[in-house]
């Protein structure tokens, strides 16, 4: 059980760090979805089924969709983040 949780936490933590360090905005949006999906799997493993469904749908589906819709509106040069 503990090992499954730790296994699920790897993409969660790595993805969360990658979201704020990656340069391309589209990659950041997709990584944010991956983080949400890992959190949903974590909730599933911990036995909170309804929370897992909500996290998967709202966190991974709808939020990512909203971000992608906004990303589509950005001009080319705004699609990359500069970490100075």
């Amino acid at each position: 059980m503990t090992w499954i949780i730790l296994l699920v936490c790897i993409p969660l933590v790595v993805g969360a760090v990658a979201v704020v360090t990656v340069r391309d905005l589209l990659s950041a949006i997709i990584l944010e979805g991956v983080v949400s999906l890992s959190a949903a799997v974590l909730f599933l493993v911990l036995g909170a089924l309804d929370v897992a469904i909500t996290q998967a749908v709202v966190g991974c589906g709808l939020t990512t969709a909203v971000f992608l819709y906004s990303w589509r509106r950005l001009p080319e040069k705004a699609r990359e983040v500069s970490h100075d």
């Binding site: 309804d50 469904i53 909500t54 709202v58």
Partner: peptide, 11 residues
């Protein structure tokens, strides 16, 4: 079962 209107509606 767990779930109901809020998660189902979100789906």
């Amino acid at each position: 079962t767990p779930g109901g209107g809020f998660p189902g509606g979100a789906l």
